[in-house]
């Protein structure tokens, strides 16, 4: 027999494009929740949530320059838990896919479950999903490696140059404090230097930004790797590094399979 406490929690994904990417299920969760707590990328998106929910609280105010982001995330989770403990049907609304490169949705679900509440996540359209559509890349063609840019650097991930490499949040690459929303040219130069271990300086890369609003244009700017430090980067810019060489067939393995 299931014995859950009265409050419940669903973290929903609202997709990237304002009100246009949300799933039927996720929208219904928002409409039926007692309270919706959100992290959205734009005031219009917050106003849209106001218009389709009973009560909406933005979690944006927990962010601030100079404040450690771990503290912000912890406070956001606690705010969500406060509402669940009141016995409400709580919805967390997160743009993109709530479970992709996002710790608040995962952490808040885990905390709610640990306290005995029903909690789960509704998937959605992520920035990565938009990237495949906007850039016409099929991840099945050559494979894709996807990293948060700072993690890629700090932990020395090694790219496989026959596949695509996606580096998320490149504008924060090498930013160690987690208290600011920008990095330095020096850090971007360090990223470039690291990439040059595998890629030629003239290798063409793509700076990608999905459109949050239908008025926004999608950024698909092609530059050379060496030009990255002098290029404008935004918090939502993703660096796409196409393969540097062709895939090679593992003849020995294929022959063995044919014999078998």
């Amino acid at each position: 027999m299931i014995n859950k406490k009265k409050g419940s929690y669903i973290a929903v994904s609202t997709g990237i494009l304002l009100a246009g990417h949300i799933s039927v299920r996720a929208k219904k969760v928002i409409e039926e929740a007692d309270v919706v707590l959100s992290l959205m990328p734009h005031p219009i998106a917050e106003n849209w949530l106001d218009s389709i929910s009973r009560e909406h609280i933005s979690l944006q105010s927990y962010y601030s320059e100079g404040k450690h982001r771990k503290q912000s995330y912890s406070e956001m989770c606690e705010r969500i838990l406060e509402e669940i403990r009141k016995g409400k049907r709580v919805c967390g609304a997160f743009y993109g896919h709530a479970g992709v490169f996002a710790c608040v949705p995962h952490d808040s679900i885990k905390l709610a479950q640990e306290e005995g509440f029903s909690a789960y996540m509704e998937p959605g359209i992520s920035a990565e999903a938009c990237l495949y559509s906007d850039l016409g890349i099929d991840p099945g063609s050559f494979g894709v490696q996807s990293y948060e840019a700072s993690q890629f650097l700090f932990y020395g991930h090694q790219p496989n140059v026959v596949s695509y490499l996606l580096l998320w949040q490149v504008a924060l690459a090498g930013e160690l404090t987690a208290k600011t929303f920008k990095t330095s040219e020096k850090n971007i130069e360090a990223l470039v230097k690291y990439l040059l271990n595998w890629y030629p300086p003239e290798h063409e890369i793509i700076l990608y930004e999905a459109a949050f609003l239908p008025l926004d244009s999608v950024r698909k700017e092609k530059i050379k790797i060496v030009d990255l430090p002098s290029t404008d980067l935004n918090l939502h810019t993703t660096l796409v590094v196409p393969p540097a060489r062709k895939m090679n067939i593992n003849k020995e393995l294929v022959e063995r399979l044919e014999v078998g």
């Binding site: 734009h42 962010y63 982001r69 992709v100 996002a102 710790c103 949040q169 987690a178 918090l235």
Partner: peptide
């Protein structure tokens, strides 16, 4: 001009997992 009508983009870095374990 457009942002006068729409408002400005919020800080949208809930995708941060920077040095999650130890920083």
């Amino acid at each position: 001009e457009i942002e006068k009508l729409t408002g400005t983009k919020a800080v949208c870095i809930n995708i941060v997992m920077l040095m999650k374990d130890d920083k």
